[in-house]
Amino acid sequence: MYGTRLRLLSTLTAAVLITAYALAAFTAPLDADQGFSQKIFYVHVPMAIVALCGFVFGGIMAIQHLRTRDPSYDLKSYVAIHLSVVLGVGVLLTGGIWARAAWGVWFEWREPTLVSFLIVFLLYCTYQPLRFSIEDPDRQARYASVFAITAGAFVPLNFLAVRLAQPYIHPRVLNDTGGALPTGMKIPFYLALVGMALLFVTLWKYEMAHKHSRAQLRALRRKLGGEAAGAGRTAAPQVHAP
């Protein structure tokens, strides 16, 4: 079941995130050029990496869904993509704040990673409307999976294309490979990355548990013979509880 050990996981997530940001705020060295505003890097970059991994994970679950026809994979894919889109909003907001502080603009077209992320984010914004505009739940699940697989493959190719389009190197303060980071920055950064990944997993599990208990509730209501709340038209996958 999805509801088990959520308390432990939540506590762990909170602990890792708090440690990471405490270290980032108090012990990590200040960036020579940007000063304190550079600290947003510890939120922005891990969030972006986790969101992109979430998109790819959604694609992998979608492959599983098409192979096995097991609707629970569709639900996994849906929840992952949904969460990643929400994180994506956070990435673009923090990116904008950082760009404003560092370069005086809200959006920097010469920063290929940010541009790539925007394109990917815009593509995934259509996932929900696509699901919503297909009524038959079977077809909705299948089409969503085809979308998730195609878009998942698009993520790396898009990053390649956008990066190639920047022959001149913009002064890259954020080095997302982490290789050039001073050690004092490295530890809080990786810790924040782990924390963000844990946050994703925790939220994903909460949402899965929520969907399952809702399905069970509906099934129980049906057994009681009451007019259970009709599912209506929805973009979320329907789980059929036993």
Binding site: I119, V120, L122, L123, C125, T126, P129, L130, S133, I134, E135, Y143, F147, T150, A151, F154, L157, N158, L160, A161, V162
Partner: peptide
Amino acid sequence: TRARDLILPLIALPMLVP
């Protein structure tokens, strides 16, 4: 889909950016 004129460019245009 019920909104095909809308869904198609919303998916195809970002995908064709490369």
